[in-house]
Design a protein around this nucleic acid. Sequence first.
DNA 1: CAGTATCCAAAGGGATACTG
DNA 2: CAGTATCCCTTTGGATACTG
Lengths: 96, 96
Amino acid sequence: MDVLNGKWKIAIISSICYYNKRRFSDILNDVVGISNKMLSKELKELEINKLVKRTVLNTQPITVQYELTPHGLTLQTIISNLTEWGIAHRKEIVGE
Amino acid sequence: MDVLNGKWKIAIISSICYYNKRRFSDILNDVVGISNKMLSKELKELEINKLVKRTVLNTQPITVQYELTPHGLTLQTIISNLTEWGIAHRKEIVGE
DNA sequence: CAGTATCCAAAGGGATACTG
DNA sequence: CAGTATCCCTTTGGATACTG
């Protein structure tokens, strides 16, 4: 079930989702701690799973934009549920 | 957010959840492919996160029962959502 | 800019054997 | 039965340098 493996996937999706469209180097900045190698790899996996769409813009030098596919947008609910649960979980753990 | 890391966590929770109470060796059988070392480790983590409760029964030889805590039960919704999404995802991927 | 390639240390995790 | 301990191979992922 874990198309979302690798600790970065959710952060990457969140970044793209927040800005709607996002360039490679921008995501690199958004997701603190990630290396270009990892970002490249994770994006490739997301693309294979049809969660993000990759479009090359013919600028000079070239830039690449990533955006969520309709199917990728489907994840929003899941992710926000997870986030919500995570917050509740923190309270549960530290609360005692 | 990933208290559910390690590829086994969800399977373990599902096993316990399905049977309500479940012994160590039973979970070992339910979750195909897991080693006792991993099961032990994962259960320990789940216990630390207060998702499962561990109770030692004074039988001979001793048996140990695991069950979900109220807080652990909270995950059910999340997991079923994930499962549901996973199924839809499969269709999306293989469908084309 | 958007990656790819290489190197390498650390973590993950299987198999097996052992203990109370 | 319910683990723990050890060995050891595999995977993960960071740092850095390089390419079109």
